[in-house]
C-alpha cells in the first residue's frame, strides 16, 4: 500500500468534502436519544492512511459516532462503509474482523487475564477458539505464532516485563498502552481510539503520541477522539469538528484553530459580542 503524505493538500476545508482515497465513508447517519439529535452526519469521508482527529465540545456526539460506526450502537438512519464494504446491520465483532478496531474512553483491560492473555484474545486466527478446536486440539501452532506476534507488540509498547502479570495490576497509562497493543493484534486497517490520552501523565502522552504516529507509518488509518488541542495540532493530518451531532468544520489542523464556527461551538456564540 502506498500512502501519499500530501494527499490531503488540495482538499478544501469544508464539511463533507470528498477525499481522494476514502477508507471510511459515512452518509446520512442519524441517531437520536429521545428528542436529542446525538449524531446527525450528512456526509463524512476519512482518508486512508491518515490520522484524523475528531474533536468537539462535550456532548458533541463524538463517542456516539464511534459507537455507531463500530457496531456498538444502531443508528436510526444512514449508512457507512469500510473500504467499500457496507457496515449497516453488521455486529460489532464482525466490524472488528473486517479490520476496524476501536478502543474505549474508559479503558477496558481484561483485568483477571494476564497481559499476554489479553493479547491472545485479540488474535483472529486461532482455531482453538472454536468448540471443536478446543476439544480436539491442533491449535498449538497458531498459539505459538500469536505469542510471537504478541511478544513483538509488547516489546514495542514497553510492556514486555508485565507480560505475565494480570492486566488489572497495570497502571492507568499501561492499560492504555495495552489497549492499543491489543487492538493491533487484530491487524486492523482502521484503528479508532477514544480519548487515548485521557488520564495519562505528560511523559506517557508523548510516548503514546509517538506510537500513534507509528501506526500511520505502518499504513493504518487512525481516527481518534481528543480534547487536547495541542495534541491534535501536533499529530493529526486532518481534523473533523463535531458540534451537536453534526460536522461543523473539517480541514487541516492549522485551519481549525482560527475557524470562527469552531470557536463559536466551543465558547458559545455570545462571546464575541461581549468582547466587542
Amino acid at each position: 500500500m502506498t500512502i501519499d503524505p500530501n494527499a490531503l493538500a488540495d482538499v478544501a476545508a469544508v464539511p463533507g468534502v470528498a477525499k481522494p482515497d476514502p477508507i471510511v465513508t459515512i452518509d446520512g447517519l442519524e441517531r437520536s436519544f429521545g428528542g436529542v439529535h446525538a449524531v446527525n452526519v450528512d456526509h463524512l469521508e476519512i482518508q486512508r492512511g491518515t490520522i484524523t482527529s475528531l474533536i468537539g465540545p462535550n456532548g458533541a456526539g463524538k463517542t456516539t459516532l464511534f459507537n455507531l460506526i463500530s457496531g456498538f450502537d444502531e443508528p436510526d438512519n444512514g449508512e457507512w462503509d469500510l473500504d467499500g464494504g457496507g457496515l449497516v446491520g453488521i455486529s460489532a465483532y464482525q466490524v472488528a474482523r473486517r479490520g476496524m478496531v476501536r478502543t474505549f474512553q474508559l479503558t477496558k483491560s481484561l483485568a483477571r487475564l494476564t497481559v499476554m492473555e489479553n493479547m491472545h484474545v485479540a488474535d483472529q486466527t486461532n482455531p482453538g477458539e472454536t468448540l471443536r478446536g478446543a476439544l480436539f486440539g491442533g491449535w498449538r501452532k497458531a498459539e505459538d505464532e500469536a505469542t510471537e506476534k504478541a511478544t513483538a507488540l509488547l516489546e514495542r509498547f514497553g510492556l514486555t516485563h508485565m507480560a505475565d502479570e494480570f492486566a488489572g495490576s497495570l497502571s492507568g497509562g499501561q492499560r492504555k498502552l495495552l489497549e492499543v497493543a491489543r487492538a493491533l493484534m487484530v491487524d486492523p486497517d482502521v484503528i479508532m481510539l477514544d480519548e487515548p490520552m485521557a488520564g495519562v501523565n505528560p511523559a506517557l502522552t508523548q510516548s503514546l503520541l509517538h506510537h500513534i504516529t507509528g501506526l500511520r507509518e505502518d499504513g493504518m488509518t487512525v481516527i481518534f477522539i481528543e480534547h487536547d488541542m495541542d495534541v491534535v495540532q501536533e499529530i493529526s493530518d486532518w481534523v473533523v469538528v463535531l458540534a451537536e451531532g453534526s460536522v461543523i468544520a473539517e480541514g487541516p489542523p492549522a485551519s481549525i484553530g482560527s475557524n470562527e464556527i469552531v470557536i463559536d461551538a466551543y465558547l458559545g456564540r455570545t462571546h464575541r459580542e461581549e468582547e466587542e
Binding site: 476501536r102 483477571r112 487475564l113 491472545h120 482453538g128 487492538a183
Partner: peptide, 24 residues
C-alpha cells in the same frame, strides 16, 4: 484452551471481547 480464554475475556468485559472480534 483458547476457547476458555475467550470465555474468561467475556466474563471480564464483554464489550472489550466484542471489540476484539469475538462473537460474544
Amino acid at each position: 484452551s483458547p476457547w476458555g480464554r475467550v470465555m474468561r475475556a467475556i466474563r471480564e468485559d464483554e464489550d472489550a471481547a466484542r471489540s476484539l472480534g469475538k462473537n460474544v
